[in-house]
Amino acid sequence: MKIEINFYGQLTDKTGCSSFLMDNPGTIADFKKLVIEQYPNLSNAKFTIALNNKIALDNEVIPENAKLALMPPFSGG
């Protein structure tokens, strides 16, 4: 089963896309490793991950059909 990943803010400049689907990697920590492998530009970016609309901890297990959001800080005003 696939999970859906959405990028926010300037992360889309680093990935070149706003969303993609991937096979469920297991935990949030596993996901982080894989997403940086797939998009190396993310390795020096700060972002927080939300799992199904809640901030996720590294050891959380990703359920099937989950939606992940990668959100960077915005500074502008």
Binding site: A45, K46, S75, G76
Partner: peptide
């Protein structure tokens, strides 16, 4: 800080002057 514990470095995130901002958005 619960959301973003550490600030990004100045070259990590473009500000409005560098990246632009749609006028109505703020």
């Amino acid at each position: 800080r619960d959301l973003f514990p550490e600030p990004p470095k100045s070259d990590e995130v473009l500000n409005c002057a560098e990246g632009g901002v749609l006028g109505v958005l703020p």
